[in-house]
Design a protein around this nucleic acid. Structure first.
Lengths: 223, 223
DNA sequence: AAACATAGTTCAAACGAATGTTTAACTCAA
DNA sequence: TTGAGTTAAACATTCGTTTGAACTATGTTT
């Protein structure tokens, strides 16, 4: 009747192994046998508990979304409470801080070493997992950033120009994970230590902050 | 003795099909049979001409690198000739122009619809193809951008801070391809027309240009 | 309390389909 | 006739999934 204690553990073991594997490599590059072995469970457990490989992948995306949401909750709720009665200058500073923090976290292992890869890959050929990840990840960041940037530039948050800027600034952070390998090569390094992260965070924060000072030439609210 | 005319055509057909397929989907998600069918050649031609699937993949990366280099050559050589005796202000403008142009091209289909996906994917688990792509693609952009930004901010081009800024600004452009799906969702669209591209290019250019006006708080050259 | 029945879970084994690659016969211009 | 190139067929693996028996608690009956 009641589920046995080992049931939940089997699920968790598989999810942990799947998160690790799907984070690093593509869906097709990960085999069910490999997942079962890594999780230390029987092969048939995947079909039994998740209905198959695809079900496990979706469950992994859900788990990932929840974890990222939890990690972001702290930063975002802090920003949300801060910008309620913030001046444009303060909003600019908040944006810089948020982007810088995001960049450092992405470059480091705060979100897991390979986990963001799954998100990036989902954008190429979006599956059901993309919806899950957008709702919990890109969506909230887009939203908060839009509010902040709109306030900082004296424009509505749902303005198209505001949204383009928000997206571009997210790119400033995301590239530190998506283009990590190229950056290592460019800066002639083998890895980044804690000091690097602090400095990069500061540079990116200053960059994003001053980016909001300018005006778009051409009169219209653009787009 | 001499190669028959059909030889080269078989290679080209396979490379075209591989560029299309590997651009959209992961290495493991593309089958040799599918490639042969799409190219209209026999299955064994892959092994015969490229030594196998992996060889075809590397050849595709080389072809992609050359095409991208050609596409970028125009922009980059124009910039290179322009910044030789340019003022910091002009350099800032050149950077903005370059980033904006890059963003619009990436968001549109200038580089091919799915081609940039291969590059992004290679950063996750770099293979030999990464070297090829860095040399012809990221490398030159990094270099030119470093020169421009260094001059614009009165710092050496090989400064670590300069490099971080260059990388971050590239991210502003890359995100418009890497995060295209999320942007469509954010801006509530189904696609971007020519007018969108022009506007986005202008916004991103202004953003990148004004980003270079600020100073990084904290005294040292950073990093 | 002992024996049985039941439902949930694990397990080794096997399934058919698809994978990348190789083989050997064949084509045809030099 | 020679040999580079093409072709269909077959190669051995690996894939995701399914099977049916074994195991293990729990609930019921005796």
């Amino acid at each position: 009747m009641t589920t046995r204690p080992s049931t939940q553990e089997t699920r968790e073991r598989l999810l942990a192994a799947a998160l690790e594997a799907f984070g690093q490599r593509d869906y097709d590059a990960v085999s069910t046998r490999e997942l079962a072995t890594a999780a230390g469970v029987n092969l048939a457990a995947i079909s039994y508990h998740f209905g198959g490989k695809h079900g496990l992948y979706l469950a992994t995306a859900r788990l990932l979304g929840e974890r990222m949401r939890a990690l972001l909750h702290e930063d975002l709720s802090w920003v949300r409470s801060a910008y309620a009665d913030a001046s444009p200058e303060e909003c600019r500073r908040l944006v810089g801080d948020l982007i810088g923090r995001l960049a450092a976290r992405l470059l480091g292992d705060a979100f897991g070493r390979h986990v963001p890869g799954l998100i990036i890959r989902e954008q190429g050929q979006p599956t059901e997992a993309f919806e899950i990840l957008y709702e919990t990840l890109f969506g909230p960041i887009h939203h908060v950033l839009g509010e902040l940037i709109g306030r900082a530039r004296g424009r509505p948050a749902d303005d198209d120009e505001t949204r383009v800027i928000a997206h571009a600034l997210i790119g400033q952070a995301v590239i530190f994970r998506a283009g990590r390998t190229a950056l290592l090569r460019y800066m002639d390094r083998e890895g980044f230590d804690e000091g690097d992260l602090v400095h990069i965070r500061r540079v990116v924060a200053a960059l994003a902050e001053s980016a909001l000072t300018g005006h778009v030439e051409g009169d219209e609210p653009c787009l």
